[in-house]
Amino acid sequence: MKNNSILKIISVKTSLKHIGNGLYRGKCPFCGAIQLYVFEKENCYHCFNCGKNGDQARFMNENKIHYKDAVGKKNHVIHTKPRDLKTFYELNYEAAKFFFERLFSKKENVCLDYLINKRGLTTETICNFRMGYADGNFTSLKEHMLGLGYTIEQLLQSSLVTVSKNDEIIDFFNNRAIFPFIDINGNIIGFGGRKLDGDNNFKYLNTKNTPCYTKNNFLFSLNYAVKNISKGETPILCEGNLDVISMHQAGFRTAVASCGTALTTKQALLLKRYSDEIIICYDNDDAGIAATEKAIDILESVGFTVYVISIRDAKDPDEFIKKFGAKQFYQLIRNDLKNSIFYRIEQLSQKYDLTDLDAQSYFIKDVTELSLRKNYDPEKAIKETFNFI
């Protein structure tokens, strides 16, 4: 090893094993997982568990290593590379352009067929959302981006490539429909990928946290929805990217989603900049109901007035619109929208046989406790509850 090589510096904190051409692996000193990869030629490291990455100077700084401990007594100067967000925006733009061109390639029609014939999206919608296709070749994007002059370090930091089980550097997205993540300023900051076939394991795959993308502080399609929300229309919070895209296509242009993660306080505060009211429209299953309960708490904690749509006869908004049309979904919003407290009361009512007097008394007790907890008049809540049950 050279005196100031990244291998010698990282070896101060962890043992490294040579596993390939200039590729080393070891236990991550940040999280303890054996998923720290060191790329000697690129002078960088990346942990695929906790996401820590950078060059030798960043490693020394974050681990409080003095250069004498790492490289000896000679005064070696190690320069860190600044993280220029503009470079990452440009890199993601080029990746999105590559995915988009692959989608409309005459040789590659499996993804376009999936989006149009299975998901019911129009070409106009696909283009508006800048959707694309990551093929199944595992290295197509990597080779394309290297050909444009980007480095493996930049591709790793952008979560566009990863290390396979066979310790090979491959594309992060393979055989998936691609949804670019676009921030409020129009920058492409990451991607989401939807499997085209097979089982539901890892059905959705999203960019890991990068210098320009943090999943807890981003809402899919807010860049499109903010125009209508700013005009006074109420944002509609969904679970999935395809739900959002389907709703926008149907004319509900305030739909947003939290990109495969439970709603966070940061995401709620991001929406709060533009509206004081919000509608939750999650999937009609146990997971969707549980997620709705959690989202209500978070949204109310930042000051939202929360309403809920309960999807019936369909698993999610996308399926409902396909089965019954946009007009029926509009009627659902108009006639079946519930304030969060009455949504929760409705959920409570399903626990009891309300034809039984004893069950009714337990139900009233639960409603009273819920009302007091939410600073709502219990007597009014009980009266209004029995009006709609």
Score class of each variant (00 low, 15 high):
Tyr213Cys: 00
Ala250Asp: 07
Asp353Asn: 09
Leu222Lys: 05
Lys97Leu: 07
Tyr37Ser: 04
Phe48Val: 01
Gly20Lys: 05
Leu85Asn: 15
Thr14Val: 08
Ser140Met: 11
Gln157Arg: 11
Cys238Leu: 00
Leu332Ile: 03
Ala257Met: 03
Cys127Met: 11
Asp283Val: 00
Gly51Lys: 01
Tyr376Phe: 14
Lys165Asn: 15
Ile389Gln: 10
Asp199Thr: 06
Ala291Asp: 01
Thr234Phe: 09
Thr122Ser: 06
Gly251Trp: 14
Val38His: 09
Gly26Glu: 03
Tyr24Glu: 01
Phe252Arg: 05
Asn339Gly: 14
Thr368Trp: 07
Val163Ala: 05
Leu146Pro: 08
Gly54Tyr: 02
Asp283Phe: 00
His66Tyr: 08
Ala359His: 14
Tyr330His: 07
Phe220Pro: 03
Ala33His: 10
Glu369Ala: 10
Phe179Trp: 12
Tyr37Phe: 12
Gly22Glu: 09
Pro378Val: 08
Lys294Asn: 11
Lys383Glu: 15
His18Phe: 14
Val77Pro: 05
Lys8Cys: 06
Cys44Ser: 04
Phe172Ala: 06
Gly149Asn: 11
Lys383Asp: 13
Ile65Asp: 03
Phe304Gln: 10
Ile389Asn: 12
Asn200Arg: 13
Leu156His: 06
Asn49Ile: 12
Thr261Val: 07
His144Cys: 14
Tyr133Glu: 13
Leu16Val: 07
Lys8Phe: 04
Cys259Met: 09
Gln331Phe: 13
Gly26Val: 01
Thr122Trp: 09
Leu269Ser: 12
Thr305Glu: 11
Arg130Met: 12
Leu372Pro: 07
Lys195Tyr: 03
Lys383Trp: 13
Gln360Pro: 04
Ile178Tyr: 13
Thr264Leu: 01
Arg344His: 10
Asp171Asn: 04
Asp167Cys: 10
Leu348Pro: 13
Glu94Cys: 04
Ile279Gln: 01
Leu222Val: 03
Lys86Glu: 06
Arg130Trp: 12
Tyr37Ile: 10
Glu233Met: 15
Phe98Glu: 03
Cys28Glu: 14
Asp316Asn: 03
Lys13Val: 03
Ile6Ala: 01
Phe191Asp: 11
His248Leu: 09
Phe363Arg: 00
Lys107Cys: 08
Asn185Leu: 12
Leu270Gln: 07
Lys165Tyr: 15
Ser11Cys: 07
Asn61Val: 14
Asn92Arg: 00
Pro378Cys: 10
Lys41Ser: 15
Lys165Ser: 15
Asn49Leu: 15
Met145Lys: 12
Ala57Phe: 11
Leu160Gly: 02
Asn75Asp: 15
